[in-house]
Amino acid sequence: MTASFFIRRIAYGLLLMLGVVILNFLLIRLAPGDPAVVIAGEMGGIDAQMLAAIRADYGLDKPLPTQLWIYLSNVVQGNLGESFFFNQPVATLISARIGPTILLVLTAQVLSIVIGMFLGVIAARKPNGPLSGFVSVFATIGYAVPVFWTGIMLVILFASVFPIFPVEGMRSVRLRDAGPIAQFFDVAHHLVLPAFTLAIIYLAQYARLSRASMMDVLGSDYIRTARAKGATEQSVLFKHALRNAALPILTVAGLQFGNLISGALLVETVFNWPGMGRLAFDSILRRNYPTVLGVLFFAAAMVVAANILTDLSYRWADPRLRGRE
């Protein structure tokens, strides 16, 4: 049954992606002006020949359904259009940028979940203790701070006051030819500030949420049962309670993934992180729509994938959802 659930989930995900492609198509057609000009984008340098080529490529002289069909079959073949500025296919452009974004987003996700839950669990043991107070203040503040501003403040702090972490880019130029281990640590070193900047909002939210959920769970009957059989406090907290308390965090973390990508967009811009967000920003400034819409497509695909993974891990973590076999 898990297999069929998985297949259904994937099929639905593909359907959503089809929706994204159609949306992209509509966006270009709905934008004011000649779609060929919109596609060519990039102010200046559009000549009649180029526009004619675009019209032919996208079938812009044909009826709308045909145009949609052409667009769809192009996307299915991995053709998301050309970036005239970079003079590269959009798909190639994005595939070089997607890795750093995934690295940043996943690191931030893991950091925020692990640290947030840890703080929340500790705070839940003393609902009126100082850590509990700190967690709720921190969560309120974390929610209100603009993520790009946190990044900028950290850049100022770490560039001039404590220059221990790099504040720009993903790799050092001088280590371009170093061995893989040195490169790994170099990237990790560059990752620290962007990942923390991005993680901090969610970290605060997860700390507050896991504190509440943990307090809920700690009052439940099965925790009393665990204590009644003589389980140690660590076992009660981290084995019996945490696994149950983590379920709502998992749900929220799944739902937040899209917002995390939105945040990554800003963080990449602040730290010059060579990811899709940076690419989207550069392309938008140049009115390069095929690239921007390509980023939208890939970002949506990441969210869909994250949702499928969340669903699967939820079923793994909560046996009640697995159903009887």
Partner: peptide
């Protein structure tokens, strides 16, 4: 305990 429905850990 009184509540067998909730006294066992669901996971």
């Amino acid at each position: 305990f009184q509540e067998p429905m909730t006294s066992l850990n669901p996971v």
